Amino acid sequence: MRTATIALALLTTPGACAAAGPLRGDAFVIDGDTIKIGGERIQLYGVDAPEDWQFCRDETGADYQCGKKAALALEAFLSASRPTRCRFAGRDRYGRYIGACFRADGKDVNQWLVESGHAVSREENHDKGLYAAAQEMARSVGAGMWRGQARAEGSNHVAEE
């Protein structure tokens, strides 16, 4: 609940993209942390999923495409309750909206990605990130990419943290 309150506070500050308003529609998954609604690309705020080309190691040490798996899991999650609604906190350096998104049933998409182990909490301003508690929970139960080894930034493979 604290995470949702913080996210809403961040997304309703004067610097938020109030002119754009919330965006609602069927989401098309670009990758594990980016979606598109109505022609607008949206980077999911506070999360970082492996890229499509990245590999992770499972509990046996075998490689698997965790980036591709994250994108497929996000597609399945969003498909279960459409449409998707997003609120924006601004734009990133690539011109994409940065936002928190919710399924039609109200479930927080950003939080789910981290809780399910398909993304990590993005560190912002040297803190542990908005979804740090969700990440620790996912890690403790071995969810998603935490079942083996977490990924290393900029690496084709994951490394033990």
Rank of each mutant, 00 (worst) to 15 (best):
G90H: 06
N156T: 11
R2Y: 07
P50L: 02
C86I: 11
Q54W: 07
Y97G: 04
C101W: 03
A138Q: 07
R91Y: 13
R87Q: 14
I6W: 04
E160R: 12
R151E: 07
P14A: 11
F102K: 06
I98E: 05
A159K: 14
C101A: 13
S79M: 09
T3P: 00
T84Q: 08
S140Y: 06
D26N: 12
R57G: 04
D105R: 08
R91S: 11
P50D: 06
F28V: 12
R87S: 13
A134T: 05
S140I: 06
V141C: 01
R103W: 09
L130I: 06
I42A: 04
E160P: 10
A71N: 05
A132I: 04
G99W: 09
N125D: 13
G148Q: 01
L23Y: 01
M145R: 01
A150H: 06
I37D: 00
E161C: 07
D26A: 15
R93S: 14
I42L: 05
R96E: 07
D92L: 13
F28C: 01
W146I: 00
R93I: 10
D33V: 01
A27N: 11
S155L: 08
G67W: 03
E153K: 12
D58Y: 04
R2W: 07
T12Q: 13
G25M: 06
M1C: 07
V109L: 08
D52W: 01
Y94F: 15
I30S: 08
A19Y: 09
Q65K: 15
N156G: 14
D92C: 10
S79W: 02
A143F: 03
G106D: 14
L74P: 07
E136C: 00
R41G: 02
T5E: 15
A62G: 12
L44I: 11
Q111S: 06
G39C: 01
P83W: 09
W112G: 00
A133S: 15
T3M: 07
C86E: 10
E40P: 00
L10D: 12
G117I: 00
G117A: 01
